[in-house]
């Protein structure tokens, strides 16, 4: 099985070093939250890991042939593009493309993957609606379902819960956690540190041109690090309701 291994990865955009010397190994069962200030390179890190942009160093995924990579990792970009008014069902079915031989009809086994992805995201009611005419949050869920239908051991998503309502933010993060518990490797970039603290098994903090911290949420989301990376003070406690993390103020 393919795992995500980055070795000394670095990205320069227009001559500026975005980050440098990032090495990490993602294991099955992990839900990794990629956090960091705007411009720290979260998107670039994931795109470089996927081999979508030129980079220095090694990525196990970027080294794969395109078809093999499509069966190893599903990617949900930040820009939620749905160009045409295709029905939700057909949009989700696009996730099966890497698995299907050239042809028109979808085999029963693949249809089962599609149906499962649709119901996991609660899209049954919207199945036949044109995806491009759904609300932003519904589109996001349809696109997550598409990524799920690709049925890959690794799932990478760029800010998948941005713009979702609280219910769907929480249920989407629990869904990712379930996938991780089932043995998938999930990596999501996320700005909601409270949700990251509750759901992720591991947090990678990207700041100051590299990985500033990498470990369990408890360790990474420490007040000192948050002050240094984001310039904020935080409240982070283990409570009867699980870990609660709340950003408080801007510190100078």
């Amino acid at each position: 099985m393919t795992t995500l291994v980055l070795d000394n990865l670095g990205v320069r955009l227009r001559g500026r070093v975005v980050f440098d010397a990032v090495s990490l190994r993602a294991q099955p069962g992990e839900l990794i939250g990629l956090i960091g200030p705007n411009g720290a390179g979260k998107t670039s890190l994931m795109r470089a890991a996927l081999g979508l942009i030129p980079c220095t160093g090694q990525s196990s995924l970027a080294d794969l042939a395109p078809r093999a990579r499509a069966r190893a990792v599903a990617w949900m970009p930040q820009s939620r593009e749905i160009a045409w008014p295709v029905p939700v069902e057909r949009l989700v079915a696009l996730g099966r493309l890497p698995h299907l031989p050239a042809g028109r009809s979808i085999p029963a086994a693949d249809q089962a993957h599609i149906d499962r992805a649709i119901s996991r995201l609660g899209l049954d009611r919207l199945r036949h609606r044109a995806a491009s005419r759904l609300s932003g949050g519904e589109q996001a869920r349809a696109l997550i379902a598409r990524a799920l239908a690709q049925d890959t051991p690794i799932l990478m998503a760029d800010e998948p819960i941005a713009g979702l309502d609280p219910v769907h933010q929480i249920s989407t993060m629990s869904l990712f956690r379930d996938l991780a518990d089932d043995g998938h490797t999930v990596m999501v970039s996320i700005h909601d540190l409270g949700l990251a603290a509750r759901h992720c098994t591991r947090i990678i903090l990207l700041a100051e041109g590299g990985v500033m911290a990498d470990g369990p949420p408890r360790e990474v989301l420490s007040p000192a690090r948050m002050a240094r990376a984001f310039g904020i003070s935080v409240w982070h406690e283990d409570t009867d309701h699980g870990p609660v993390f709340q950003p408080l103020d801007v510190v100078s």
Partner: peptide
């Protein structure tokens, strides 16, 4: 078909 989801997503679908 894959490009319905944009260039990045299409590329990662092989």
């Amino acid at each position: 078909d894959a490009l319905t989801l944009g260039e990045d997503a299409a590329e990662t679908m092989g």
